[in-house]
Each structure stands twice: as C-alpha cells, then as structure tokens.
C-alpha cells in the first residue's frame, strides 16, 4: 500500500507539477533536442509509475523486484509459483493501463504512416524529382517546403518556392527539411500526440503535445544553421510565409514562426553544461525511476 501511494504521488508529481516549470523554462528553446527528450522521458516515467501503482493496488502483498524481473512481472510474464494460482487475472488491470497509451501510439503511428503513404503515391506521379536538389519539385505556384518522413522519405519544394527563394535560401530550407527526416522528428511528434490523446486532461500530456512540435522545428533550424547563415534561413521563412494565403485566425500553438525567427536572428548561448548534463541525466533516469521507488530498499 505504501508503495502504491508513493507511486501515485510520484505520478502526480511528474504528470501535473513537473511539466509547468519545464514548459516555462528558458533553456528549452536553447537546447530543443534535449527538451524533447525530457518531455518524452517524463511521459514514459508517468506511464511506468501509473502501471506499477495499479499493479500494487491490484495485486496486494506481492512485492515487485528490481529491474527485469519486475518488468516481466508487470507484463504478466511470471515464472510459475510467484503468484498464488488463480490471481493471474489481477494482472489484467495493470496490463490494461500499460496497453492504453501503447495502443494509442500504435494507432497514431499507423494512421500517420498511411496518410504519408497516400500523399507520397500521388506525389511520385505528379512531382518531378530533381537530383541536384535531392528533392521533389511540385508544380504549384504557392511557395511551400515540406517533408514526408519515414522510410522512403521525400523532401518537397513547390515551383513557387523555387521561384521566390535565392539558391542560398533553397539550400538552407532543404537542410531544415532534411534535419526532420534524419532526426526522425515525426516519431517524437506522433508519440507526444498519442500521449495527449491517451491522457487528455493530464497537464504533462497537454503541454508535451503543445511544446514538442515547436521544439522539433527549432531543432531542425539548429541543424540547418550549422552550415547555412542564420539570416538566410530566417529570410527564407519570411518569404515562404509571405507568399502563402494569410491565416485569419491565430495558430493554436501561438506565434511559433515568430519565436523561431527571433531565435535565429538573435541566437542565445546554449545552456550551461551543468544544466545540460542534469537534463540529460533526468531524461535517462526518469523512465526507470518508478521501478526504484517501488523496489528500492526504502519501502518494504
């Protein structure tokens, strides 16, 4: 019981309190990749804690052991004799808690992959592949640049974008899109969206889904400006946005483009190494921390 309470307390901390300072923190935009990793780690940590807590409540008196044995236990893979016979059904509850977000994730991955596949099938018929650019050129007057990530990825520029942008700007834009593909940003994005769909009222889920897309754009910007001037990418963003039909309503996530352009034009130093190390450590530790909470010697 004590362990279950400790785990629920931990889940509350990670799910409701920790995300608020993280969403407001200044360092996240200066180390976007690290921030994405931390959001994902907190989500995983929350699910682990919740599953373990439900397990403790459903199967009272059975102590979870550290590490692999504990994990197998949660997954319902027990060596014979570890549970009194006839109580195996009690594992259904924690298993359901684990499968709920996992199912959401699997469905979201399948859905976005299908969406991309359909888009790509038409794209391959309509767009011309430009070997020099390493991109597909879509014959459309509206300037746009985008990528289809995943296996058989595609980077796409419209004719409108090619006409509007200088060669330098095109190169910077392509580097940005390529960064999305090579960084597999779509997986982090889909995971954050699926987590928010699984736990719609959880602050951690809501904020992670809100912050992750912007952080991924910033990560791709950072990658692009390693080899291309910052002002070139910023100017390309302006030109593309200027050439599109303006929105009438503000975007849900706030003025993301403005944040990105200001950040490109006035780069801030990366966070202090100690802070980076702490964030990296927290990302690595968070998913396994709940196991230590229950199985450590502290709570008998």
């Amino acid at each position: 019981m004590t362990a279950a309470l400790a785990l629920l307390g931990y889940a509350l901390l990670v799910g409701a309190l920790a995300p608020l300072p993280l969403a407001r923190s200044g360092w996240a935009h200066r180390a976007p990749r690290l921030a994405v990793a931390l959001w994902q780690a907190l989500a995983l940590s929350f699910v682990t804690a919740l599953v373990l807590a439900v397990h403790h409540l459903a199967v009272p008196g059975v102590h979870l052991h550290l590490g692999l044995a504990g994990l197998m236990h949660v997954c319902g893979v027990d060596h014979p004799g570890s549970l009194a016979s006839g109580t195996g059904w009690r594992l259904l509850l924690p298993a359901a808690v684990a499968l709920w977000p996992l199912g959401r994730l699997a469905a979201a991955l399948a859905r976005t992959a299908r969406h991309r596949r359909r888009h790509r099938a038409v794209l391959d018929l309509v767009a011309a592949r430009d070997r020099d650019l390493g991109a597909h050129v879509l014959d459309h007057a509206t300037p746009a640049a985008y990528c289809l990530p995943g296996r058989r990825s595609r980077i796409v520029l419209t004719r409108g974008a090619l006409e509007l942008l200088t060669d330098q700007q095109v190169a910077a834009v392509l580097a940005h899109e390529r960064a999305h593909v090579t960084g597999r940003h779509h997986l982090a994005r889909t995971a954050a969206d699926a987590f928010a769909a699984a736990f719609p009222f959880l602050p951690l889920a809501r904020l992670a889904a809100r912050e992750t897309p912007l952080l991924l754009e910033m990560a791709a910007d950072d990658r692009a400006v390693r080899r291309h001037p910052r002002t070139v990418l910023a100017a390309a963003m302006y030109r593309v946005a200027d050439g599109q039909v303006p929105r009438t309503a503000f975007a849900a996530g706030g003025p993301a483009a403005l944040l990105r352009v200001r950040r490109l034009l006035a780069p801030a130093a990366a966070p202090h190494p100690a802070l980076r190390a702490a964030a990296a450590l927290a990302s690595a530790a968070a998913p396994v921390l709940p196991l230590l909470v229950t199985c450590g010697p502290v709570l008998p």
Binding site: A108, T112, A144, Y146, A251, L258
Partner: peptide, 15 residues
C-alpha cells in the same frame, strides 16, 4: 499527428 512537416505555418498579417 504531424504526418507532414512543412517549413512554416500560414501566418496572420500581424504575425
């Protein structure tokens, strides 16, 4: 679900 990621979202005239 971010099936497609494009460079910059459509902006309002103010933005």
């Amino acid at each position: 679900g971010g099936a497609l990621a494009h460079l910059v979202e459509q902006l309002t005239p103010e933005e």
